[in-house]
Design a protein around this nucleic acid. Structure first.
Lengths: 234, 234
DNA sequence: CCTATATATTAGGTATACCTAAATCTCTGA
DNA sequence: TCAGAGATTTAGGTATACCTAATATATAGG
Protein backbone atom coordinates (compact mmCIF):
# COMPACT_ATOMS: atom_id res chain seq x y z
CA UNK A 1 0.00 0.00 0.00
CA UNK A 2 1.95 3.02 -1.24
CA UNK A 3 1.68 6.64 -0.18
CA UNK A 4 -1.84 7.78 0.69
CA UNK A 5 -2.52 11.30 -0.33
CA UNK A 6 -6.16 11.91 -0.94
CA UNK A 7 -8.21 15.01 -0.54
CA UNK A 8 -9.83 15.43 2.83
CA UNK A 9 -12.64 17.41 4.33
CA UNK A 10 -12.39 19.81 7.24
CA UNK A 11 -12.01 17.74 10.32
CA UNK A 12 -11.05 18.41 13.88
CA UNK A 13 -7.58 17.06 13.13
CA UNK A 14 -7.09 19.26 10.11
CA UNK A 15 -8.23 22.26 12.14
CA UNK A 16 -5.62 21.52 14.76
CA UNK A 17 -2.82 21.19 12.24
CA UNK A 18 -3.74 24.48 10.61
CA UNK A 19 -3.97 26.24 13.94
CA UNK A 20 -0.57 24.90 14.96
CA UNK A 21 1.00 26.04 11.71
CA UNK A 22 -0.54 29.47 12.16
CA UNK A 23 0.78 29.87 15.67
CA UNK A 24 4.24 28.45 15.07
CA UNK A 25 4.63 30.35 11.83
CA UNK A 26 3.84 33.53 13.72
CA UNK A 27 3.03 36.84 12.16
CA UNK A 28 6.10 36.47 9.94
CA UNK A 29 4.61 33.35 8.37
CA UNK A 30 7.91 31.55 8.42
CA UNK A 31 7.95 27.96 7.28
CA UNK A 32 7.21 25.59 10.13
CA UNK A 33 9.15 22.35 10.60
CA UNK A 34 7.66 18.89 11.05
CA UNK A 35 9.37 18.53 14.40
CA UNK A 36 7.88 21.74 15.73
CA UNK A 37 4.45 20.55 14.68
CA UNK A 38 5.01 17.08 16.08
CA UNK A 39 5.98 18.61 19.42
CA UNK A 40 3.04 20.95 19.55
CA UNK A 41 0.44 18.45 18.43
CA UNK A 42 1.86 15.53 20.38
CA UNK A 43 1.94 13.16 17.41
CA UNK A 44 4.77 11.29 15.68
CA UNK A 45 6.74 13.19 13.01
CA UNK A 46 5.66 10.63 10.44
CA UNK A 47 2.04 11.54 11.06
CA UNK A 48 2.87 15.17 10.40
CA UNK A 49 4.45 14.39 7.03
CA UNK A 50 1.43 12.35 6.06
CA UNK A 51 -1.07 15.02 6.95
CA UNK A 52 0.93 17.82 5.31
CA UNK A 53 1.10 15.89 2.06
CA UNK A 54 -2.64 15.42 2.10
CA UNK A 55 -3.32 19.05 2.94
CA UNK A 56 -0.99 20.19 0.16
CA UNK A 57 -2.68 18.25 -2.64
CA UNK A 58 -6.29 18.70 -1.55
CA UNK A 59 -8.65 20.21 -4.16
CA UNK A 60 -8.37 23.41 -2.19
CA UNK A 61 -4.81 23.15 -0.83
CA UNK A 62 -4.50 24.24 2.78
CA UNK A 63 -0.71 24.47 2.91
CA UNK A 64 2.32 25.03 0.74
CA UNK A 65 4.62 22.15 1.43
CA UNK A 66 8.01 21.10 0.10
CA UNK A 67 9.79 17.96 1.21
CA UNK A 68 12.33 18.69 3.92
CA UNK A 69 11.65 22.43 3.82
CA UNK A 70 8.68 22.80 6.13
CA UNK A 71 5.18 24.18 5.53
CA UNK A 72 3.36 27.43 5.33
CA UNK A 73 -0.38 28.07 5.23
CA UNK A 74 -2.03 28.74 1.90
CA UNK A 75 -4.52 31.60 1.84
CA UNK A 76 -7.36 29.10 2.33
CA UNK A 77 -5.51 27.41 5.19
CA UNK A 78 -4.84 30.70 6.86
CA UNK A 79 -8.46 31.68 6.54
CA UNK A 80 -9.57 28.45 8.18
CA UNK A 81 -6.96 28.65 10.93
CA UNK A 82 -7.98 32.18 11.79
CA UNK A 83 -11.60 31.16 11.87
CA UNK A 84 -10.82 28.45 14.40
CA UNK A 85 -8.75 30.83 16.50
CA UNK A 86 -11.65 33.28 16.39
CA UNK A 87 -14.00 30.53 17.53
CA UNK A 88 -11.65 29.55 20.31
CA UNK A 89 -11.18 33.01 21.68
CA UNK A 90 -14.82 33.98 21.38
CA UNK A 91 -15.82 30.81 23.19
CA UNK A 92 -13.29 31.48 25.95
CA UNK A 93 -14.63 34.98 26.36
CA UNK A 94 -18.17 33.69 26.38
CA UNK A 95 -17.47 31.03 28.98
CA UNK A 96 -15.74 33.56 31.17
CA UNK A 97 -18.17 36.45 30.77
CA UNK A 98 -21.51 34.76 30.39
CA UNK A 99 -21.14 31.39 32.05
CA UNK A 100 -18.81 32.53 34.84
CA UNK A 101 -16.19 29.89 34.19
CA UNK A 102 -13.02 30.05 36.24
CA UNK A 103 -10.31 31.36 33.91
CA UNK A 104 -8.25 28.20 34.11
CA UNK A 105 -11.08 26.11 32.69
CA UNK A 106 -11.96 28.14 29.64
CA UNK A 107 -9.15 26.83 27.45
CA UNK A 108 -9.96 23.13 27.52
CA UNK A 109 -13.65 23.67 26.90
CA UNK A 110 -12.97 26.06 24.01
CA UNK A 111 -10.41 23.69 22.57
CA UNK A 112 -13.12 21.08 22.03
CA UNK A 113 -16.03 23.30 21.06
CA UNK A 114 -14.16 25.50 18.57
CA UNK A 115 -14.47 22.79 15.90
CA UNK A 116 -18.18 22.27 16.16
CA UNK A 117 -19.95 25.59 16.51
CA UNK A 118 -21.81 27.03 13.54
CA UNK A 119 -21.48 30.44 11.96
CA UNK A 120 -24.69 31.34 13.68
CA UNK A 121 -23.34 30.38 17.08
CA UNK A 122 -20.21 32.40 16.44
CA UNK A 123 -22.23 35.42 15.36
CA UNK A 124 -24.61 35.18 18.31
CA UNK A 125 -22.00 34.97 21.04
CA UNK A 126 -19.97 37.73 19.40
CA UNK A 127 -23.07 39.96 19.43
CA UNK A 128 -23.92 38.99 23.01
CA UNK A 129 -20.39 39.94 24.08
CA UNK A 130 -20.40 43.23 22.17
CA UNK A 131 -17.90 42.07 19.55
CA UNK A 132 -14.90 41.88 21.88
CA UNK A 133 -11.38 42.49 20.57
CA UNK A 134 -9.52 40.29 23.03
CA UNK A 135 -10.15 37.14 25.03
CA UNK A 136 -9.80 36.74 28.81
CA UNK A 137 -6.09 35.97 28.42
CA UNK A 138 -5.59 39.24 26.61
CA UNK A 139 -5.09 37.71 23.19
CA UNK A 140 -6.51 39.32 20.07
CA UNK A 141 -9.63 37.82 18.56
CA UNK A 142 -9.37 37.66 14.75
CA UNK A 143 -12.15 39.46 12.94
CA UNK A 144 -14.87 37.76 10.95
CA UNK A 145 -12.93 38.70 7.85
CA UNK A 146 -9.84 36.90 9.10
CA UNK A 147 -7.71 39.83 10.17
CA UNK A 148 -5.68 39.38 13.32
CA UNK A 149 -3.84 42.27 14.90
CA UNK A 150 -0.14 41.40 14.79
CA UNK A 151 1.66 41.08 18.16
CA UNK A 152 1.91 37.42 19.27
CA UNK A 153 5.52 36.27 19.43
CA UNK A 154 7.48 37.89 22.24
CA UNK A 155 10.99 37.54 23.57
CA UNK A 156 11.46 34.88 26.23
CA UNK A 157 12.74 37.59 28.55
CA UNK A 158 9.39 39.35 28.33
CA UNK A 159 7.49 36.27 29.44
CA UNK A 160 5.41 36.41 32.57
CA UNK A 161 6.47 34.11 35.39
CA UNK A 162 4.03 31.24 35.59
CA UNK A 163 3.01 31.59 31.96
CA UNK A 164 2.89 28.63 29.58
CA UNK A 165 4.46 29.20 26.18
CA UNK A 166 5.65 27.46 23.09
CA UNK A 167 8.94 28.31 21.47
CA UNK A 168 8.16 30.16 18.29
CA UNK A 169 11.60 30.71 16.87
CA UNK A 170 15.23 30.52 17.86
CA UNK A 171 17.24 33.28 16.26
CA UNK A 172 20.60 32.91 14.50
CA UNK A 173 23.56 32.58 16.82
CA UNK A 174 27.08 31.29 17.07
CA UNK A 175 27.88 27.58 17.11
CA UNK A 176 28.78 27.48 20.79
CA UNK A 177 25.52 29.10 21.91
CA UNK A 178 23.70 26.86 19.55
CA UNK A 179 25.29 23.81 21.11
CA UNK A 180 24.50 24.96 24.62
CA UNK A 181 20.94 25.66 23.64
CA UNK A 182 20.66 22.29 22.05
CA UNK A 183 21.90 20.69 25.27
CA UNK A 184 18.92 22.20 27.07
CA UNK A 185 16.59 20.53 24.59
CA UNK A 186 14.95 23.83 23.68
CA UNK A 187 13.75 23.83 20.11
CA UNK A 188 10.98 25.38 18.11
CA UNK A 189 7.68 23.90 19.17
CA UNK A 190 8.80 22.95 22.68
CA UNK A 191 6.30 23.86 25.37
CA UNK A 192 7.56 25.50 28.52
CA UNK A 193 6.52 27.21 31.70
CA UNK A 194 8.30 30.26 33.05
CA UNK A 195 9.41 30.14 36.69
CA UNK A 196 9.81 33.07 39.03
CA UNK A 197 13.02 35.00 38.45
CA UNK A 198 16.05 33.86 40.39
CA UNK A 199 18.51 36.52 39.26
CA UNK A 200 18.28 40.25 38.77
CA UNK A 201 19.97 40.05 35.42
CA UNK A 202 17.72 41.71 32.88
CA UNK A 203 17.24 38.95 30.39
CA UNK A 204 17.93 35.82 32.43
CA UNK A 205 15.04 33.52 33.00
CA UNK A 206 14.20 30.19 34.61
CA UNK A 207 11.92 27.80 32.86
CA UNK A 208 10.85 24.24 32.92
CA UNK A 209 9.72 22.11 30.02
CA UNK A 210 6.13 20.95 30.04
CA UNK A 211 5.89 17.37 31.20
CA UNK A 212 9.27 17.53 32.95
CA UNK A 213 8.48 19.49 36.09
CA UNK A 214 11.60 18.26 37.85
CA UNK A 215 14.04 19.81 35.40
CA UNK A 216 14.27 23.54 35.90
CA UNK A 217 16.46 25.21 33.28
CA UNK A 218 18.21 28.50 33.93
CA UNK A 219 18.88 30.54 30.84
CA UNK A 220 21.44 33.29 30.68
CA UNK A 221 20.64 36.45 28.81
CA UNK A 222 22.75 35.11 26.00
CA UNK A 223 20.70 31.95 25.68
CA UNK A 224 17.33 33.57 26.24
CA UNK A 225 18.13 36.44 23.93
CA UNK A 226 16.86 35.21 20.61
CA UNK A 227 14.21 32.86 21.76
CA UNK A 228 10.80 34.11 20.79
CA UNK A 229 7.75 32.51 22.30
CA UNK A 230 4.01 32.48 21.90
CA UNK A 231 1.56 31.82 24.68
CA UNK A 232 0.52 28.22 24.73
CA UNK A 233 -3.21 27.91 24.58
CA UNK A 234 -4.39 29.46 21.40
CA UNK B 1 -9.64 -10.44 8.79
CA UNK B 2 -12.39 -12.00 10.93
CA UNK B 3 -15.00 -10.34 13.10
CA UNK B 4 -13.84 -7.21 14.85
CA UNK B 5 -15.29 -6.79 18.26
CA UNK B 6 -13.07 -4.77 20.49
CA UNK B 7 -13.91 -2.51 23.36
CA UNK B 8 -14.46 1.10 22.46
CA UNK B 9 -14.48 4.42 24.19
CA UNK B 10 -17.31 6.92 24.25
CA UNK B 11 -17.46 8.51 20.87
CA UNK B 12 -19.91 10.63 19.01
CA UNK B 13 -21.02 7.55 17.09
CA UNK B 14 -21.59 5.48 20.18
CA UNK B 15 -23.58 8.34 21.70
CA UNK B 16 -25.82 8.41 18.68
CA UNK B 17 -26.46 4.69 18.74
CA UNK B 18 -27.35 4.78 22.43
CA UNK B 19 -29.64 7.74 21.96
CA UNK B 20 -31.40 6.01 19.08
CA UNK B 21 -31.90 2.84 21.11
CA UNK B 22 -33.28 4.90 23.98
CA UNK B 23 -35.78 6.70 21.79
CA UNK B 24 -36.89 3.72 19.75
CA UNK B 25 -37.10 1.49 22.81
CA UNK B 26 -39.37 4.07 24.37
CA UNK B 27 -40.38 4.14 28.00
CA UNK B 28 -41.28 0.46 27.76
CA UNK B 29 -37.65 -0.39 26.92
CA UNK B 30 -38.69 -2.88 24.29
CA UNK B 31 -35.95 -4.50 22.27
CA UNK B 32 -35.04 -2.43 19.23
CA UNK B 33 -34.41 -3.99 15.82
CA UNK B 34 -31.38 -3.43 13.61
CA UNK B 35 -33.56 -2.16 10.82
CA UNK B 36 -35.18 0.46 13.01
CA UNK B 37 -31.75 1.65 14.08
CA UNK B 38 -30.44 1.58 10.52
CA UNK B 39 -33.36 3.73 9.41
CA UNK B 40 -33.00 6.21 12.20
CA UNK B 41 -29.25 6.54 12.02
CA UNK B 42 -29.05 6.44 8.24
CA UNK B 43 -26.42 3.70 8.11
CA UNK B 44 -26.39 0.21 6.60
CA UNK B 45 -27.87 -2.61 8.70
CA UNK B 46 -24.50 -4.35 8.68
CA UNK B 47 -22.96 -1.35 10.40
CA UNK B 48 -25.57 -1.60 13.13
CA UNK B 49 -24.76 -5.24 13.82
CA UNK B 50 -21.08 -4.43 14.03
CA UNK B 51 -21.54 -1.61 16.48
CA UNK B 52 -24.01 -3.52 18.65
CA UNK B 53 -21.59 -6.42 18.97
CA UNK B 54 -18.86 -4.07 20.08
CA UNK B 55 -21.09 -2.25 22.55
CA UNK B 56 -22.27 -5.55 24.02
CA UNK B 57 -18.81 -6.90 24.80
CA UNK B 58 -17.16 -3.67 25.94
CA UNK B 59 -15.57 -3.75 29.41
CA UNK B 60 -18.61 -1.81 30.56
CA UNK B 61 -21.30 -3.17 28.22
CA UNK B 62 -23.62 -0.51 26.90
CA UNK B 63 -26.30 -2.82 25.52
CA UNK B 64 -27.79 -6.25 25.94
CA UNK B 65 -27.70 -7.84 22.55
CA UNK B 66 -28.70 -11.23 21.20
CA UNK B 67 -28.28 -12.25 17.58
CA UNK B 68 -31.46 -11.77 15.60
CA UNK B 69 -33.39 -10.59 18.66
CA UNK B 70 -32.62 -6.88 18.82
CA UNK B 71 -30.99 -4.77 21.54
CA UNK B 72 -31.84 -3.06 24.75
CA UNK B 73 -29.76 -0.59 26.73
CA UNK B 74 -27.80 -1.81 29.72
CA UNK B 75 -28.01 0.36 32.83
CA UNK B 76 -24.72 2.03 31.83
CA UNK B 77 -25.96 2.57 28.27
CA UNK B 78 -29.18 4.05 29.50
CA UNK B 79 -27.32 6.38 31.82
CA UNK B 80 -25.14 7.61 28.97
CA UNK B 81 -28.06 7.98 26.56
CA UNK B 82 -30.01 10.01 29.08
CA UNK B 83 -27.01 12.20 29.69
CA UNK B 84 -26.78 12.97 25.99
CA UNK B 85 -30.49 13.68 25.76
CA UNK B 86 -30.13 15.99 28.75
CA UNK B 87 -27.26 17.76 27.00
CA UNK B 88 -29.24 18.06 23.81
CA UNK B 89 -32.33 19.52 25.41
CA UNK B 90 -30.46 21.85 27.70
CA UNK B 91 -28.46 23.15 24.75
CA UNK B 92 -31.62 23.66 22.72
CA UNK B 93 -33.17 25.58 25.58
CA UNK B 94 -30.02 27.60 26.01
CA UNK B 95 -29.78 28.50 22.33
CA UNK B 96 -33.40 29.51 22.28
CA UNK B 97 -33.53 31.41 25.57
CA UNK B 98 -30.10 32.94 25.85
CA UNK B 99 -28.81 33.20 22.30
CA UNK B 100 -32.16 33.97 20.68
CA UNK B 101 -31.91 31.24 18.08
CA UNK B 102 -34.90 30.72 15.82
CA UNK B 103 -36.62 27.54 17.02
CA UNK B 104 -35.98 25.67 13.79
CA UNK B 105 -32.23 26.02 14.16
CA UNK B 106 -31.77 24.79 17.69
CA UNK B 107 -31.90 21.10 16.86
CA UNK B 108 -29.00 20.89 14.43
CA UNK B 109 -26.70 22.93 16.62
CA UNK B 110 -27.57 20.89 19.70
CA UNK B 111 -27.15 17.67 17.78
CA UNK B 112 -23.47 18.46 17.24
CA UNK B 113 -22.62 20.13 20.53
CA UNK B 114 -24.30 17.56 22.80
CA UNK B 115 -21.30 15.24 22.42
CA UNK B 116 -18.62 17.71 23.33
CA UNK B 117 -19.76 19.81 26.27
CA UNK B 118 -18.31 19.14 29.71
CA UNK B 119 -20.12 18.51 32.95
CA UNK B 120 -19.28 22.03 33.91
CA UNK B 121 -20.87 23.44 30.77
CA UNK B 122 -23.98 21.39 31.40
CA UNK B 123 -24.17 22.55 35.00
CA UNK B 124 -23.63 26.18 34.11
CA UNK B 125 -26.25 26.45 31.41
CA UNK B 126 -28.74 24.54 33.57
CA UNK B 127 -28.14 27.03 36.38
CA UNK B 128 -28.36 30.00 34.01
CA UNK B 129 -31.71 28.71 32.73
CA UNK B 130 -33.08 28.02 36.21
CA UNK B 131 -32.95 24.22 35.85
CA UNK B 132 -35.69 23.95 33.25
CA UNK B 133 -37.88 20.84 33.07
CA UNK B 134 -38.65 20.98 29.36
CA UNK B 135 -36.98 22.17 26.18
CA UNK B 136 -38.44 24.64 23.64
CA UNK B 137 -40.22 21.78 21.85
CA UNK B 138 -41.95 20.83 25.06
CA UNK B 139 -39.95 17.67 25.66
CA UNK B 140 -38.84 16.66 29.13
CA UNK B 141 -35.24 17.25 30.08
CA UNK B 142 -33.81 14.26 31.97
CA UNK B 143 -32.44 15.11 35.40
CA UNK B 144 -28.78 15.07 36.31
CA UNK B 145 -29.45 11.73 37.99
CA UNK B 146 -30.79 10.26 34.77
CA UNK B 147 -34.51 10.30 35.50
CA UNK B 148 -36.78 11.19 32.63
CA UNK B 149 -40.49 11.77 33.17
CA UNK B 150 -42.31 9.10 31.17
CA UNK B 151 -44.63 10.32 28.42
CA UNK B 152 -42.85 10.22 25.00
CA UNK B 153 -44.57 7.80 22.65
CA UNK B 154 -47.97 8.99 21.52
CA UNK B 155 -50.59 7.68 19.15
CA UNK B 156 -50.19 8.76 15.55
CA UNK B 157 -53.65 10.26 15.74
CA UNK B 158 -52.48 12.62 18.47
CA UNK B 159 -49.65 13.96 16.34
CA UNK B 160 -49.53 17.64 15.53
CA UNK B 161 -49.80 18.55 11.86
CA UNK B 162 -46.40 19.61 10.62
CA UNK B 163 -44.56 17.64 13.29
CA UNK B 164 -41.70 15.29 12.49
CA UNK B 165 -41.84 11.90 14.17
CA UNK B 166 -40.33 8.47 14.16
CA UNK B 167 -42.46 5.38 14.40
CA UNK B 168 -41.95 3.94 17.83
CA UNK B 169 -44.07 0.84 17.69
CA UNK B 170 -46.72 -0.79 15.58
CA UNK B 171 -49.24 -2.60 17.69
CA UNK B 172 -50.63 -6.10 17.10
CA UNK B 173 -53.25 -6.31 14.39
CA UNK B 174 -54.85 -8.65 11.94
CA UNK B 175 -53.04 -9.98 8.89
CA UNK B 176 -54.91 -7.85 6.41
CA UNK B 177 -54.18 -4.61 8.24
CA UNK B 178 -50.63 -5.72 8.64
CA UNK B 179 -50.34 -6.26 4.91
CA UNK B 180 -51.84 -2.90 4.08
CA UNK B 181 -49.54 -1.23 6.56
CA UNK B 182 -46.59 -3.00 5.08
CA UNK B 183 -47.58 -1.75 1.63
CA UNK B 184 -47.26 1.81 2.91
CA UNK B 185 -43.70 1.08 3.98
CA UNK B 186 -44.40 2.20 7.54
CA UNK B 187 -42.24 0.32 10.00
CA UNK B 188 -40.64 0.97 13.33
CA UNK B 189 -37.88 3.51 12.91
CA UNK B 190 -39.36 5.18 9.85
CA UNK B 191 -39.30 8.96 9.98
CA UNK B 192 -42.37 10.83 8.93
CA UNK B 193 -43.99 14.24 8.83
CA UNK B 194 -47.64 14.79 9.62
CA UNK B 195 -49.68 16.75 7.07
CA UNK B 196 -52.72 18.89 7.78
CA UNK B 197 -55.88 16.87 8.27
CA UNK B 198 -57.92 16.15 5.17
CA UNK B 199 -60.83 14.34 6.79
CA UNK B 200 -62.90 14.94 9.89
CA UNK B 201 -62.64 11.32 10.93
CA UNK B 202 -61.21 11.21 14.41
CA UNK B 203 -58.21 9.04 13.93
CA UNK B 204 -57.44 9.46 10.23
CA UNK B 205 -54.23 11.20 9.39
CA UNK B 206 -52.14 12.18 6.38
CA UNK B 207 -48.42 11.80 6.50
CA UNK B 208 -45.43 11.72 4.28
CA UNK B 209 -42.20 9.82 4.77
CA UNK B 210 -39.07 11.86 5.30
CA UNK B 211 -37.07 12.10 2.12
CA UNK B 212 -40.10 11.28 -0.05
CA UNK B 213 -42.02 14.54 -0.06
CA UNK B 214 -43.97 13.60 -3.16
CA UNK B 215 -45.64 10.58 -1.61
CA UNK B 216 -48.38 11.63 0.77
CA UNK B 217 -49.91 8.66 2.59
CA UNK B 218 -53.45 8.76 3.94
CA UNK B 219 -54.04 6.51 6.89
CA UNK B 220 -57.45 5.39 8.00
CA UNK B 221 -58.26 5.20 11.66
CA UNK B 222 -57.74 1.48 11.38
CA UNK B 223 -54.24 1.84 10.06
CA UNK B 224 -53.24 4.75 12.27
CA UNK B 225 -54.74 3.15 15.34
CA UNK B 226 -51.88 1.25 16.80
CA UNK B 227 -49.01 3.26 15.48
CA UNK B 228 -47.19 4.97 18.27
CA UNK B 229 -44.70 7.65 17.46
CA UNK B 230 -42.06 9.74 19.12
CA UNK B 231 -41.05 13.23 18.05
CA UNK B 232 -38.05 13.14 15.80
CA UNK B 233 -35.35 15.37 17.07
CA UNK B 234 -34.29 14.12 20.43
C1' DC C 1 34.58 18.83 1.05
C1' DC C 2 32.65 15.24 2.99
C1' DT C 3 30.69 12.57 6.64
C1' DA C 4 28.09 12.08 11.20
C1' DT C 5 23.98 13.30 13.21
C1' DA C 6 19.71 15.25 13.54
C1' DT C 7 15.64 15.80 10.81
C1' DA C 8 12.29 14.18 7.67
C1' DT C 9 10.06 10.74 4.83
C1' DT C 10 8.59 6.17 3.31
C1' DA C 11 6.76 1.68 4.36
C1' DG C 12 3.81 -1.02 6.60
C1' DG C 13 0.42 -1.49 10.62
C1' DT C 14 -3.68 -0.51 13.94
C1' DA C 15 -8.35 1.10 15.32
C1' DT C 16 -12.80 3.28 14.34
C1' DA C 17 -16.69 3.55 11.69
C1' DC C 18 -18.47 3.16 7.79
C1' DC C 19 -19.71 0.37 3.13
C1' DT C 20 -21.47 -3.67 -0.34
C1' DA C 21 -22.39 -8.34 -1.37
C1' DA C 22 -23.11 -12.89 0.11
C1' DA C 23 -24.67 -16.01 3.53
C1' DT C 24 -27.94 -17.26 7.08
C1' DC C 25 -31.58 -16.97 10.10
C1' DT C 26 -36.85 -16.26 11.48
C1' DC C 27 -41.30 -16.48 10.98
C1' DT C 28 -45.41 -15.58 8.15
C1' DG C 29 -48.91 -17.31 5.29
C1' DA C 30 -50.53 -20.75 2.34
C1' DT D 1 -45.49 -27.58 8.42
C1' DC D 2 -42.57 -25.60 5.68
C1' DA D 3 -40.95 -22.48 1.80
C1' DG D 4 -39.71 -18.21 0.77
C1' DA D 5 -39.46 -13.31 1.85
C1' DG D 6 -37.54 -10.22 4.67
C1' DA D 7 -34.45 -9.25 8.40
C1' DT D 8 -29.98 -9.95 10.14
C1' DT D 9 -25.30 -11.24 10.22
C1' DT D 10 -20.79 -12.45 8.18
C1' DA D 11 -17.08 -11.48 5.06
C1' DG D 12 -14.27 -8.52 2.98
C1' DG D 13 -13.36 -3.47 1.74
C1' DT D 14 -12.52 1.84 2.21
C1' DA D 15 -11.03 6.22 4.42
C1' DT D 16 -9.13 8.85 8.31
C1' DA D 17 -5.71 9.48 11.49
C1' DC D 18 -2.78 7.69 14.10
C1' DC D 19 1.65 4.47 15.19
C1' DT D 20 6.74 2.21 14.82
C1' DA D 21 10.74 0.97 12.26
C1' DA D 22 13.56 1.58 8.43
C1' DT D 23 15.43 4.70 5.12
C1' DA D 24 16.75 8.96 3.05
C1' DT D 25 18.26 13.82 3.20
C1' DA D 26 20.59 18.04 4.71
C1' DT D 27 23.79 20.44 6.99
C1' DA D 28 27.27 21.51 10.50
C1' DG D 29 31.95 20.67 11.86
C1' DG D 30 36.08 18.72 11.34
Amino acid sequence: MPARRQANANSESVDNYLKAILVLGGSTEQRVTSTALANRLGVAPASITNMLQKLAVAPEPMVEYERHRGVRLSPAGRRRALEIVRHHRLIETFLYEILDYPIEEVHDEAERLEHFISERFEERIAAKLGHPKTDPHGQSIPTMEGQMPVREAICLSEALAGGAYVIDSVGERDAETRRRLEATGLRVGIKLQVLPRTSAETCSVSIRRAGQPEDAIDLTAELAGGIRIVPFGI
